[in-house]
Every structure is written in structure tokens, then in C-alpha cells.
Amino acid sequence: MPRNKYPEITEQRILDAATKLFLERGWEQTTIQDIVDDLGDLTRGAFYHHFKSKADIIDAVLNRLALENNPFEQTKDITGLNGLEKLKNAFLLSFTNQGQMDAIKSIPSILRSPKLIANQLMDCINTGAPDILFFIEEGMKDGSLSIKYPKQTAETLMLLTNMWISPVIFAVDTEEYMNKARHLRELYNGIGLPIIDEQILTALEQFHKEICDQNRLS
């Protein structure tokens, strides 16, 4: 077999096909063979050269969707907002973005796999937390925030809002979910980060209901 001169192009094509099929059919209804068949000119062996398992391709799809719908990047260049306001806007976008919502709905059960949870934990610290820290530091410069431990605050906020409060990883009813959200509001208000306001609480409640409605239907 001739050597693939452009492996990165093949990898992107696999991701394109997998993303489309996961969003159309859902994770459980999509097989690796489906992805190979959709591409038409790829063998299973070639697929496994780029992704070792179905969990690996799902992780890659989730990372791609997160980058494409990154609310922090969408917020960075907004003018007329201070650091705290930008952080609030980014969080509001993260819980109301329809693209991310569709992705979570399409593959909810796999998000509870130990491997993907471990990957998400590292992504929270290595990728997500620096985005939050950027806005915290901006807020400290413009006077809208006063945080004693900005780096640690960014990391814990990312971990709690993406893992502990996730209705996919920790399935709870809406009342318990909102109690968690209100607890986070009090927690971060207490250290000088009043990020969770009534608008974000409303968005969180709607987010939880949509995810739970989807899980009941699936």
C-alpha cells in the first residue's frame, strides 16, 4: 500500500465524517464501519492508524466542537465590557450555544466513560482554565474583579462548572441541579467572583432541562 503523503488531511476527513454521523445518528447508533463507509475510500486499517478506538474518535470530535464553539474566543474581542462582564458573557454563551448542545445530546452516555472524564479533567486545567484566567486578569486590571488566587480560581471554576455541575456526568433532577448552581454562586461570590447571576441561573436551568429531556427520549 502506498504511504499516505497527507495524514493530517485524512485525519480531518475522518473527523468530518464522524462529526456528521454522531450529530445525525448519535454515538450509540454510529459504528466505525459507518464512518469508513461514509468516506468511501478508506479502509478500517487506515482508520485505526489515526484513531485507536471509538472512544478516541469521540474525544477528538468533542475537542473539535469545543474549539469551533469556544465562547471565550467569541467574547475576547467584544468592546465596551470589563473583565467580569466578558467572563459572564462567555459563560452564558457556553450554556446556550446550540452547536455544543447538539453535540452533548448526540453522545451523552460516552461522556461518562472513565477515559473521557480523565481527558476532560486535563482539558479543564490545560485549555479551559487559561481562558478563564485571561478574563480574571483583565478584570483585576480594570478594577471589576479582586481575586486573591486568580490561577487557582480559574481552575476550580472550570472543573466545577464542567464536571461537578455537568448533568451528563452527575445525573440529578432539576431541583438538585439548581441547588448546585446556587451553591456555586455563593461560593464564588464569597471570593470576589460574582459570575453567576440570575440570567446565568436561568440559562443553567434551561440547559439542564434540555439535556434531561433528551436523555428521557433516548
Score class of each variant (00 low, 15 high):
Thr156Cys: 15
Glu176Cys: 02
Lys148Ile: 11
Asn179Thr: 03
Gly143Pro: 08
Ala154Met: 12
Asn126Met: 10
Asp142Glu: 05
Ile136Glu: 02
Glu137Ser: 06
Ser166Leu: 10
Leu145Tyr: 10
Tyr149Cys: 08
Met178Ala: 05
Trp164Arg: 11
Ser166Asp: 03
Met158Arg: 15
Val168Asn: 04
Trp164Gly: 13
Ala129Val: 09
Ala171His: 08
Asn162Asp: 15
Ile169Arg: 01
Ser166Phe: 04
Met140Phe: 01
Trp164Cys: 12
Asn126Ile: 15
Lys180Gln: 11
Thr127Ala: 12
Glu155Met: 06
Asp131Trp: 15
Met178His: 08
Asp142Leu: 04
Ile132Ala: 12
Lys151Gln: 02
Thr127Met: 15
Ala129Pro: 05
Ser144Tyr: 00
Gly139Tyr: 03
Lys180Ala: 14
Met163Ile: 10
Glu176Arg: 01
Gly143Val: 09
Thr153Tyr: 04
Gly143Ser: 08
Thr156Met: 14
Lys180Pro: 10
Glu138Cys: 11
Tyr149Phe: 07
Met140Val: 03
Pro167Trp: 01
Glu175His: 01
Phe135Ser: 10
Tyr149Gly: 08
Met140Trp: 02
Thr161Gln: 07
Glu176Val: 00
Gly143Arg: 11
Thr153Trp: 06
Tyr177Ser: 01
Glu176Lys: 05
Phe170Gln: 02
Pro130Arg: 05
Phe134Val: 07
Ile136Ala: 08
Ile136Thr: 08
Leu160Lys: 10
Ile169Pro: 00
Gly139Gln: 04
Leu160Tyr: 07
Ala129Gly: 09
Met140Ser: 05
Glu137Trp: 03
Ser146Asn: 14
Leu133Ile: 01
Phe134Lys: 11
Phe170Tyr: 04
Leu133Glu: 10
Thr127Gly: 13
Ile147Lys: 04
Pro167Cys: 00
Asp142Cys: 04
Gly139Asp: 08
Ile169Asn: 00
Glu175Phe: 07
Glu155Gly: 00
Pro150Thr: 10
Trp164Thr: 14
Met140Arg: 08
Gln152His: 03
Met178Pro: 00
Ser146Val: 14
Phe135Thr: 13
